[in-house]
Nucleic acid binder design. Structure first.
Lengths: 224, 224
DNA sequence: ACATAAGCGGATAGGGCATTCCACTTGGTT
DNA sequence: AACCAAGTGGAATGCCCTATCCGCTTATGT
């Protein structure tokens, strides 16, 4: 019997119980990565999935493979958002909307925020989707410049830089992350706009931000 | 015999060999934190200092105490830069110069980049210096607004947000960190300026940035 | 029903880390 | 010179991590 058409990638079709475990792993990893970021341990994901560690490693021998499987759909949403933005009648509105959308995806998901700032050379599907989204975005740039709404010195690389910056704010601002991120994005859009009439979201209250800066136990943060 | 005037803080003066070890620890920690950020392990610092682990813990029972001792001078430089900026005849030039300086300090030191985005409640001296620098900066804001060069809707909280954003870029851009950081700061200054004639540093070359995004083994980055 | 390949998860090896303990050494004082 | 409080470093403890091994279980095709 031929392997199912979709399964060309994986040599043989998985046994159905294995398929179930695979789904369980991805679901668990999705939740854990979303909350804790990509530094979550393989062991904690196996525990969350209710499978043995060996099962996790058998299915995903490297962290990158697991990450790729988990975030393929989020990356697809990113790609789709860029393409949809390109269809906008006003290139600037599309540009602005896409940036707000993708930064919002980051705010909603710690893991994806990191994925958007990294290059996973070996995860071909993931990188292809990123690349397609990026291509749609660069097209939008040209149109927005032609419209006269986007500054001429904006370059496509300003997008990954913004994504890194936004990830940094989200990781450091604690409780105030959402507000601080929106503020950052507002400022950046103002910098990008040829006509800086862009309104600006409010900054977080000083005390909120200060409280947010007290790090919770997490990778990269000292405990004491 | 009275304790030396400077040693009021520490109950008794340290024995001279202990004082030497303390300095060795701080020097080693300074180097390690600069290169690796604050997630460096206590053990690795003790090794780098050439002292036993127990010695490190005896002198600095918590990570925070070590961090405070290591970065007191960098925080002082930050404070001094803010105060000096306040003395500038042109408030905008001072504002701009201070932001470039502090973001440059971050670019030069991974550990300090993180320190500037965190709140160490218990490290009083450190926080006092931060606070004094921040106060000088807020004074500058008012003057720069009065000059008409700084937008009226800039708020002091935009500074910590920028520092978090910059730390994010520095941590994620690898080889291209310096260029990417300067580009980010340029964009932000443009957003802050009432008259956006600000010139912009060039963005990193696409390939450089992409290569930089391939993470080296570091906290928060998957190994495989 | 049964044979068997596929899959399972506990156990284990090997490492790093934070933190504490303790027997030994040493600087400073008398 | 001798004493001892202060200081030292390495060992020990206990935790979590990655990665692999291996004996047991089970889905699946006949």
């Amino acid at each position: 019997m031929e392997p199912s058409p979709d399964a060309r990638k994986r040599p043989r079709r998985l046994r159905c119980d294995a398929e179930l475990n695979r789904d369980r792993i991805i679901d668990a990893a999705r939740k854990v990565y979303r909350r804790e970021g990509l530094s979550a341990s393989m062991a904690s994901i196996a525990r969350a999935a209710g499978v043995g560690i060996a099962t996790l490693f058998r299915r995903f021998p490297t962290r990158t493979e697991l990450i790729a499987a988990v975030f393929e759909d989020a990356m697809e949403r990113n790609r789709a958002a860029a393409v949809a933005a390109g269809a906008n009648e006003s290139a600037w509105d599309g540009f602005r909307g896409y940036i707000e959308t993708v930064c919002g995806l980051q705010a909603d998901n710690r893991g994806f925020a990191e994925v958007l700032t990294m290059n996973f050379g070996s995860a071909k599907d993931l990188e292809r989707k990123r690349q397609e989204g990026f291509a749609a975005f660069t097209g939008l740039i040209e149109r927005a410049k032609a419209e006269g709404r986007l500054r001429k010195d904006f370059t496509p690389e300003d997008l990954p830089i913004l994504l890194m910056a936004n990830a940094g704010v989200l990781g450091a601002a604690g409780d105030a992350a959402g507000e601080a991120s929106r503020r950052l994005v507002g400022q950046m859009l103002r910098a990008f706009a040829a006509d800086p009439a862009e309104p600006l979201p409010p900054a977080p209250a000083p005390k909120r931000l200060l409280r947010g800066m007290v790090r919770q136990r997490r990778a990269g943060a000292p405990a004491n």
